[in-house]
Design a protein around this nucleic acid. Structure first.
Lengths: 192, 192
DNA sequence: ACCTGAACACCGTTCAAGT
DNA sequence: ACCTGAACACCGTTCAAGT
């Protein structure tokens, strides 16, 4: 096998960084799903052998943790965008958040993370702490809309749970019907 | 398929039925979770070799289908119990349904089914059709409570999605706090 | 009809050896 | 420091052969 030059990545350097492995993993997840994410496939994509993987990561568990950490950072960045929009009315803000949660690009990743969380405590902890931050932002919307703290808490949890439920129930990408549905649902949740 | 020898007892060198394999699978799932459900482990539990498994099932996929079919039958039986309670007030009926969905014994199984559904279309179809029946029962509650068909539809979907979300967000068994939360949530959903 | 036993492919993991 | 190459264990799958 002739070793193909580099992985088409940044700089075309022959040596790999942790981030190279992480990015390759994200691409595989998006292209072919959870089951396709195997060490062999990663190595083929990066043009190295398995030993290289085990120099960068102690095992598959550690590699998943690296993926989850990067995912959590991206998620936090998204949440930062919400904070920037804190001057627009609560109703619209909530609509934005729901769209982002169930939304297009994160869709596959969200599912993968939650799937790993079920069999790996370290992933579960990272997902939970990321969820907490999103929940706090949703709760703030209800507070801003004039609900008492307890009520805001309950409604934020309900809204978030429904979002996660939709994520798991959806067989495919959210349809336009789902968008209508979402708006009606938010009407109910924001009703005083 | 209706041949049931001395199932349940260990030690009988009698021949195995499909249901013997299914029941052994449920026990492994409940005891040690999804990852423990391997052909080797099933064989050790039943005291046979792998060849036996492959005489009863064409592959692991087919075996999972058998498990899902049995699960769907049990779920339908539960739903039958709801129908019997159609004379009690909507609010209480909904409370019962939510408790059963998120509830104790089916908990582990529900998750396993939905996990398989993600990577196997036949399982996804079975889960979806079972979900549809539950959804219809929830929708009926809202109709009985006086909501218009469209409203009932939307609220049933929201209630169900929230239930599934809670199922996936829960790290452990539902706490007593979760029960309070559930009642408050139902109050909002049933508010006219 | 129902099962054994041995084989094979695939994948995660290890490690001595190379640059 | 970073990677190769060969080995091993585990698990799903196949199949000829046994009862």
């Amino acid at each position: 096998m002739a070793r193909s030059d580099s992985a088409g990545g940044s700089g075309g350097n022959s040596r790999l960084s942790v981030q190279d492995w992480v990015q390759a993993g994200f691409r595989i997840l998006a292209d072919d799903g959870l089951k396709a994410l195997t060490i062999d496939r990663l190595c083929k994509r990066l043009g190295v052998t398995k030993g290289s993987f085990y120099w960068h990561f102690t095992d598959m568990k550690a590699y998943r943790n690296a993926l989850v950490d990067t995912w959590a950072a991206v998620r936090d960045a998204d949440r930062g965008d919400f904070d920037a929009l804190s001057d627009i009315p609560p109703r619209e803000r909530l609509s934005h958040m729901m769209t982002a949660l169930v939304g297009p690009s994160h869709w596959m990743l969200e599912r993968a993370m939650r799937e790993w969380a079920r069999s790996q405590d370290s992933v579960a902890a990272a997902v939970r702490s990321s969820d907490q931050r999103v929940l706090a932002a949703v709760r703030q919307v209800f507070l801003d809309d004039g609900f008492a703290p307890d009520e805001a808490d309950m409604r934020a949890n309900a809204t978030f749970a429904a979002g996660i439920g939709v994520l798991h129930l959806a067989g495919s990408r959210p349809s336009s019907r789902a968008v209508d549905w979402r708006e009606q649902f938010l009407d109910v949740m924001l009703r005083h």
